[in-house]
């Protein structure tokens, strides 16, 4: 078993906090791991990445070779594209779709999303919306690792333990917010995959995820939602409305 993950985002988004959670889970699970990161000048709002590898055997290189990454885990959609050539042909993308626009030539967010949607193996969630629902916009990194946890090799509880350890110094309220962001991210990821596997096109699945209040999502109902959005008449009011609560909107007969 081995897993190679490129963590991506913008300086200040908390990439290294994601790394902390996975590193510790890997160590506690008895795996070897290596995790190369970026310090110094690039942390000032620049593109940052971290190569994280864990395995049940010795790991040689701190850097992941191109074509060997199982997963690009990004807190920002444009940053996925900076590293997707590291992915193996059957590799996965897990990303927040919330753009971080701090450059004048940031491309149209819809175009970025359309590019990510070409990957069949992807999990896309709205980091900002989910983090807000969890109680703090800064928790977008924990949303992303929650969504990605479906592709990792650790029990949810173990990962949550290290989310708690990471924020312990800041008090129980901050711990709870970040754990909630993780949980909601994980649920949103499962809901998203449920939609896609039931035949919903990726852009529609992203859009539906954005409309539904994160704390009300139920992955078990993804197939029903797939049927709803497949019907243009049912779909139109939902995909055009402001945020709605999933539990109020479960289709009749679901």
């Amino acid at each position: 078993m081995d897993k190679n993950i490129i963590l991506a985002g913008v300086g200040g988004q908390g990439i290294l906090s994601i790394a902390f959670v996975i590193d510790n889970a890997a160590l506690a699970s008895g795996f070897e791991f290596k995790q190369a990161e970026v310090h110094g000048m690039a942390q000032r709002g620049g593109a940052v990445q971290s190569h994280l590898r864990y395995a049940d055997h010795e790991i040689h290189s701190d850097l992941i070779p191109k074509g060997a990454a199982d997963l690009v885990l990004s807190v920002e959609p444009l940053e996925v594209m900076r590293y997707w050539h590291y992915l193996r042909p059957d590799g996965w993308i897990v990303s927040s779709v919330t753009p971080y626009v701090n450059i004048p030539d940031y491309p149209e967010p819809e175009r970025v999303l359309a590019q990510l949607a070409t990957f069949p193996s992807c999990i896309l969630v709205d980091g900002a919306q989910i983090a807000k629902a969890a109680g703090n916009l800064r928790a977008q990194n924990m949303v992303a690792v929650g969504a990605a946890s479906l592709r990792l090799d650790f029990p949810e509880e173990l990962l949550l333990t290290y989310v708690a350890a990471l924020f312990e110094r800041k008090g129980p309220a901050i711990v709870e917010v970040n754990q909630q962001a993780f949980r909601l991210g994980r649920i949103a990821g499962r809901f998203f995959r449920g939609l896609v596997e039931a035949g919903v096109p990726v852009p529609t699945a992203v859009e539906l995820g954005r409309r539904l209040a994160p704390e009300t999502l139920d992955p078990a109902l993804a197939a029903d939602w797939a049927r709803v959005v497949a019907d243009p008449e049912l779909a139109a009011p939902i995909l055009q409305s402001e945020e709605i609560r999933a539990c109020d909107q479960v289709p009749v007969g679901a």
Binding site: G45, G67, H85, P89, P107, F119
Partner: peptide
């Protein structure tokens, strides 16, 4: 090694 996608060569830079 084969990869899932060619490198994006016209991507907007995000300098520090």
């Amino acid at each position: 090694r084969p990869t899932a996608h060619a490198a994006a060569d016209d991507l907007a830079n995000r300098p520090p």
